[in-house]
């Protein structure tokens, strides 16, 4: 499994979730994306969308003023 990091810290537009949606189109099933986001809303809206579509949420962590959220492409 390979991991791609999307550093969306400080990104107002398109923002972390849209960056994630675009990024998932470029990886293989089973591969992982780590999204770095300074927007607290990401810890809610990313898992909400991932569950809706049917991908998997991996480990997430609050770091120094930002969040790391891991998503595994499942379909």
């Amino acid at each position: 499994m390979s991991t791609t990091t999307i550093d969306a810290r400080g990104a107002y537009c398109p923002g972390p979730l849209l960056e994630l949606i675009a990024g998932l189109k470029l990886i293989e099933i089973g591969d992982e994306i780590e999204v770095l986001s300074s927007d607290q809303g990401s810890i809610k809206d990313i898992p909400e969308w991932v569950a809706k579509v049917g991908h998997e949420i991996g480990e997430s962590a609050e770091l120094d003023g930002y969040w790391s959220i891991r998503i595994i492409k499942a379909k």
Partner: peptide, 9 residues
């Protein structure tokens, strides 16, 4: 729209 509101901003 792809995310949970009408625009990224």
């Amino acid at each position: 729209y792809p995310i949970g509101r009408l625009h990224a901003l």
